[in-house]
Structures are given as C-alpha cells and as structure tokens.
Computed example of a mutant assay.
Amino acid sequence: MGLEMRNQCEKCSRGMMDHSDAYICIHECTFCSSCTERMNSLCPNCGGELVRRPKAGKVIRS
C-alpha cells in the first residue's frame, strides 16, 4: 500500500507537486517545509513527528 501523495499543505493550502519538499506524519497529514519548520516538525493533528515525504521518481526495472 503506497502513500497518498497529497498536493497541498494542510496548514497554508500551498500547492505541492510530487517532487516538492513536503513533510508527513504517520497518518499522512501533509505540510510544506515552511509550515513544518514553524510547527517544530510536530503534526498539529496527532502530535506525531513530521518527516520528509519521499519524492516520486521513475521506476527502473532490470
């Protein structure tokens, strides 16, 4: 099961692309880097740690 790649910050509604820096908690709440910094990397919804969301990329199969 993959992550839900949300396309906007839940705090300021700033738009984010798959390759944008974004931060998520265990429940996939999504925030931009500016809001994450202001919130001291803590999710305002669950109190969990916000960590950098993986960026989308091309799958290479051998």
Rank of each mutant, 00 (worst) to 15 (best):
M1F: 04
G2Q: 01
G2P: 13
E4T: 07
E4Q: 05
M5F: 03
R6K: 15
R6S: 11
R6F: 07
R6A: 13
N7E: 06
C9R: 07
C9L: 05
C9P: 09
C9H: 03
E10K: 10
E10N: 13
K11M: 02
R14H: 02
R14I: 10
R14A: 11
G15Q: 11
M16P: 02
M17C: 02
M17S: 14
D18N: 09
D18Q: 02
S20G: 03
D21I: 00
A22P: 00
A22N: 02
A22C: 04
A22R: 03
I24W: 05
I24Y: 02
I26F: 12
E28I: 05
E28H: 09
C29E: 03
C29M: 08
C29A: 05
C29W: 07
C32T: 03
C32P: 01
S34P: 01
S34M: 08
C35A: 04
C35K: 05
T36E: 04
E37C: 09
E37M: 11
R38L: 14
M39F: 15
M39W: 14
S41Y: 14
L42I: 15
C43V: 03
P44I: 06
P44D: 03
N45L: 11
N45R: 14
N45I: 11
N45D: 07
C46M: 12
C46D: 15
C46A: 08
C46W: 12
C46Y: 13
G47K: 09
G47M: 08
G47S: 08
E49W: 00
E49F: 05
L50N: 10
L50I: 10
V51A: 10
V51I: 10
R52E: 13
R53F: 00
P54Y: 07
P54V: 11
K55E: 09
A56M: 13
V59N: 05
V59F: 08
R61S: 04
